[in-house]
Simulated scan of single mutants.
Amino acid sequence: MKLSGHTIFITGGGSGIGRGLAEALHKRGNKVIIAGRRRSHLDAVIAANPGMEAIELDITDPASIERTAATLIAEHPELDVLINNAGIMQPDTVAGKIDDALLTATITTNLLGPIRMTSALIEHLKRKENAVVAYTSSVLAFVPMAVTGIYSSTKAALHSYVLSQRFMLRGTGVRVLEIAPPWVRTELMNSQEAEQAMPLDQFIAETITVLGTDADEILVDAAKLFRANVGPNEHDFVNNFNNQALALFAA
């Protein structure tokens, strides 16, 4: 991905990885618009980064997503990059009775939200050259953490969706990327002070470096061991399987 000259929309841009990506890409000469539910966080980010803009968005609300997409297309017709970053992570009890509110909120935020957001913008993005749709998943998509089983499952589902969407958009100008962070010092699970977690600034710096390559999966070194767990040749297998399925359905 070219690291400058884009107009970029980032969900969950008020803190953590979203803010880090927004600021790093803003410094490289991109027009960056961030979104989130907490207006105070958004205001703090744009105050610290003159020229950046913010939109309030409830990623769990389909109507809010549609309004945001319409606003973006109207006010920023040059928009060509979407980074689906918003997400929540809470401990759960997969060995017992699941709290339904936690279950619903996690799936709606982490899986339905990015799918809906991309759906609302994809036809616009198809009309752009060198457009990008990126999703922040997690290494837990490949190696689940049992104490956050629901979160891990949403990230695994998101990874699967990325593979399908990348295949189906292969003949367009839209690239589909997956950013799969390891444990990073963010607000998720109160990890800001966790010594074992990767410092946020280090993660952002390494991620931006990989983002500037032709890689479809944006992996820092600390994430690669987890990604390798699923075995070799996953992409070739997925692509071959889908090519055969398309041929079968077309017959």
Rank of each mutant, 00 (worst) to 15 (best):
P182Y: 05
I115T: 13
Y151H: 10
D92K: 02
E195F: 04
A47N: 14
N30C: 07
V162D: 03
S138I: 07
L25N: 04
A44M: 09
A74Y: 03
M52D: 05
D99Q: 08
A141D: 02
V143P: 00
T108E: 13
G51Y: 07
A44H: 04
K224H: 09
S160V: 03
E234P: 00
L219K: 09
H159M: 02
K126M: 08
M168E: 15
A44P: 02
A63Y: 02
I208Y: 06
H124Y: 05
T7E: 03
Y135G: 01
P114I: 11
V220K: 02
T213W: 07
D61G: 06
L25Y: 05
H6T: 01
E123K: 09
R28S: 06
K2E: 12
E123L: 00
A245E: 13
A54G: 12
R227S: 04
N243R: 15
R19T: 11
I218S: 03
T60M: 10
L225G: 12
N242P: 02
G113F: 05
G18D: 06
Y151R: 07
L111F: 14
Y161G: 06
A47S: 15
K128F: 06
E234C: 01
V81I: 08
N85M: 13
I10V: 14
N239G: 00
I107F: 13
N229K: 12
E78P: 01
L111R: 08
S152H: 03
L169R: 13
A141Q: 02
L188I: 14
L140P: 00
F237G: 06
A228D: 14
E66N: 13
S138A: 13
L219F: 12
L3C: 05
H26L: 07
E234N: 11
G13V: 12
H124C: 05
I218R: 05
G173D: 13
V238F: 14
L102F: 12
D61W: 04
R227E: 08
E206I: 05
N239Q: 11
T118Y: 04
G18R: 08
V174P: 01
I150N: 01
G149I: 01
H41M: 14
N243T: 11
G36K: 06
T154A: 08
K2S: 09
E206H: 13
A157N: 09
D236S: 13
T108V: 10
N239A: 10
T93E: 12
L25W: 09
P50L: 10
D201H: 12
E75F: 01
E195W: 01
M117H: 01
V132L: 12
P144I: 00
V139D: 01
R116S: 14
L112E: 10
V32N: 03
P181Y: 07
K224N: 08
